[in-house]
Design a protein around this nucleic acid. Structure first.
Lengths: 189, 189
DNA sequence: CTTCACTATATCGCGCCGATACATCAGGCA
DNA sequence: TGCCTGATGTATCGGCGCGATATAGTGAAG
């Protein structure tokens, strides 16, 4: 998931690790942060795989000084052609992980680079997933009384409200996608 | 977290791995599953630490057959005195991880075994956390237009609704905790 | 009589996290 | 002037938890 996110972000512009992480948090709305403990190793992995390349930035005073003293300086990465390709593959290859909280969030964040039909598949897959959760919670709350702790019940109540709300939200998104798709078709023919 | 959850669950009754996992999913309302890939190793760890002990069940027909043929059979675990102690410590030792989605959920699931003052601390800590998230999303949505992708904005809208709802839910829980605390005081004096 | 779904235990590789360390630089304030 | 805090910036380590996979017994449906 981080790999996908990095590749997606680097479409905007070349960036260094710290910046990447900040943009990522903004994008995911503080709901997901990706620690440096996973970011830097992933960057290495991508580098070794040739999906990104290090772009030595125009050496300026501060950095030159840092480098000449053997200190660590900014390392800027940019997307390679293979990286672009890989991102496109990943965006289209929708597995079940695209439907869980985290995966769905990341996919959605890069929807503008995702083909319309794939967007639909993801939205509908997510809806199915959330509906299942909703039904699970409903039946759990339905089996009234039944040895369920009061706090647990409250937890389930909140979960149920959240899923109901998200299903409605998804329905709106799906409907608006359909409208747009229809418009495109009308323009085409 | 899994360790805490297992120790908590075993207060109900001795159980084997598969059962533990099922009870855990029920408890967390399908919002958290804990795969076997983490459950069994954790059970081992707890066993080695002496926090749980294996309780050879009264050998019945099916199991005896299985055992005598050298096959795998049910392994039932029960809480040791040290395990009980450890759970009590963990329930009271509230770190920042008790406020994130996952940690909070698990703690709440064992609230009935948690002292009232600690319950309060957790509830209020969680509220602070969710309020921060809410404010982050509000300001992100407030900075109107500003290079934010349409889908990303939708994601933030949903996140904002969820945090608002959760804060209200927490307020109700906190209020009801306070009422109960007052009642207890009235009864005591 | 076979196939399916459920019960049940276990391992492996690896993604990701939290803590920690180190270093530079800007601004506030004493 | 000099100090401290907070942001910028890169990096590593141990360990938790996941998904995939293997294995195997059981009962019910068809």
């Amino acid at each position: 998931m981080l790999e996908f996110a990095i590749l997606g972000l680097l479409h905007e512009a070349p960036m260094h690790g710290y910046e990447l992480r900040k943009r990522l948090s903004e994008l995911l709305g503080t709901l997901r942060a990706f620690s440096y403990g996973s970011l830097y190793p992933t960057l290495r992995r991508l580098l070794k795989a040739g999906l990104i390349v290090e772009e030595t930035p125009p050496v300026e005073s501060a950095d030159r000084a840092a480098r000449s003293w053997g200190k660590r300086a900014k390392r800027v990465y940019k997307l390679s052609a293979e990286g672009k390709e890989r991102f496109a593959e990943m965006a289209v290859d929708v597995g079940p992980q695209a439907y869980d909280d985290e995966g769905f969030g990341v996919h959605l964040a890069f929807f503008s680079r995702t083909p319309a039909d794939v967007r639909m598949r993801i939205l509908e897959g997510r809806r199915r997933r959330v509906e299942e959760r909703r039904e699970g919670l409903r039946s759990s709350l339905g089996r009234a009384g039944e040895q369920i702790d009061r706090y647990t019940r409250e937890l389930h109540r909140l979960g149920l409200e959240h899923s109901e709300r998200e299903v409605r939200w998804l329905n709106e998104l799906i409907a608006s996608e359909q409208r747009e798709q229809k418009e495109r078709q009308d323009n085409d023919q």
